[in-house]
Amino acid sequence: MFETLDPLLHSQLRLSVMSLLVSVEQADFVYIKEETEATAGNLSVQLDKLSNAGYIEIVKGFRGKKPNTSCRITKNGIEAFEKYVKTINNYLNIKK
């Protein structure tokens, strides 16, 4: 039997964020917003959900005098992401 897909990752914006973060060391909020074409409000909410689940780490700091938020994926996040991709691949292989 198949495992169900992680509902936290099976959402367009959260999956976009996780795919982006899995490939970089860290990325700023503004960068993620540009690449995912999300609104700031929506992105904030989704980042909080991922952070609460322990999938990402949000670091708030300053760049010069401007406040700056940057995110990086955690070990748990990488594991969850890998599991998600594996599950999807299983689904697709069965279909063939």
């Binding site: 367009q12 999956l15 982006l20 998600y84």
Partner: peptide, 21 residues
């Protein structure tokens, strides 16, 4: 974006596109 349902194929396409970005 949050409400959209993703098919498995769409998920994989999305992952690939974001990783390439």
């Amino acid at each position: 974006k949050e409400e959209q349902n993703l098919s498995n194929e769409e998920s994989l396409k999305l992952i690939t596109a974001m990783i390439n970005k």
